[in-house]
Nucleic acid binder design. Sequence first.
DNA 1: ACGGCTTTACTCATCGTATGAGTATTCAGC
DNA 2: GCTGAATACTCATACGATGAGTAAAGCCGT
Lengths: 178, 178
Amino acid sequence: MTSAPKTQLTALELVALGLVQQPAHAYELFQHFSPDLPLGMIWHLKQSHLYALLARLEQLGYLAATVEPQGARPPRRVLRLTDAGRATLEAWLAAPVAHGRDMRQEFLAKLYFAAQRGPEAARALVARQEAATREWRADMQAQLDNAAQPYSRLVLRYRLGQIDAILTWLAECAATLV
Amino acid sequence: MTSAPKTQLTALELVALGLVQQPAHAYELFQHFSPDLPLGMIWHLKQSHLYALLARLEQLGYLAATVEPQGARPPRRVLRLTDAGRATLEAWLAAPVAHGRDMRQEFLAKLYFAAQRGPEAARALVARQEAATREWRADMQAQLDNAAQPYSRLVLRYRLGQIDAILTWLAECAATLV
DNA sequence: ACGGCTTTACTCATCGTATGAGTATTCAGC
DNA sequence: GCTGAATACTCATACGATGAGTAAAGCCGT
């Protein structure tokens, strides 16, 4: 009995889809994660990790490969988005992240791709994220108002502080992306 | 050829060691991760996850088990810290976390155990973390001063904002733990 | 008092991701 | 002409996490 195919991709898998918007081979994609490049600031991964991840995306039908022989050098497997891949990518890019903990990698990556498409796309993403984050804030504040134990209050205050810092930063972003 | 035993425990494994300061069986430890209890606010795990993790710690020599039969009910495997386990735990509890991303779970857990030992222990941990965090801040500021690309600056500004929120919160903590 | 549900307590096979290590060729520099 | 880096990909394995299962005991209603 074959197991059900997984439905939800990890953030890193979605980032990979984002990179394949321009068809490319795995080795080329890997360069994007060099520490001095934007995505390399955010994510560190090993070569074999990326290859495995791309193979998975291919097998799931989000990517398709065509082998391009090139004279002597080892042939390249050029990857490109399938329709399913593109649809999944667009849905991901349009949505804000769901948790504060997803800001530091996932949101920054979304913003990277959005910014590539121009300032309007980036501003739209920032605005949507701002709305979502304000909801977290209200939720968190409510929880804090109901929390009695000192330790719980400490934890909730920590989270509230992080959320407020996110809101400040998002406002700054919106202002920067004129 | 037996592979080298792993040296660095994960944060969750260290949290488990913290819980076993009072000898206890796995099922009992699992209750601590109920969503309404302090550690449950911070970490969510499945029962089988905890059992697997404890077995690992036992096999690595950080925990030792003694089976306690109890009349009819299934016998309990009561776990307690070995000397190695206690030493590792103490070292962990004494040290601040190394990255901002480790605050939300690992540091909050350390603080939980430190607070159990009394306000002085908690204050000491907070003070050490404050010192470490101020170093991150200086580092980050320096990177920001050297960063030219707008996207890099955005990323660094995000991190700086989070770090500042941490510092504010730590100061608040210090004030609360009178 | 008895049928069913929850709690206690632990086991185990399996999955899926991540990692290290390896392969083989080409190119650039000295 | 040699060495070392870069190009390009493969593969077995390790390890953490998960679902599902076991099995007896306690509790609750009727």
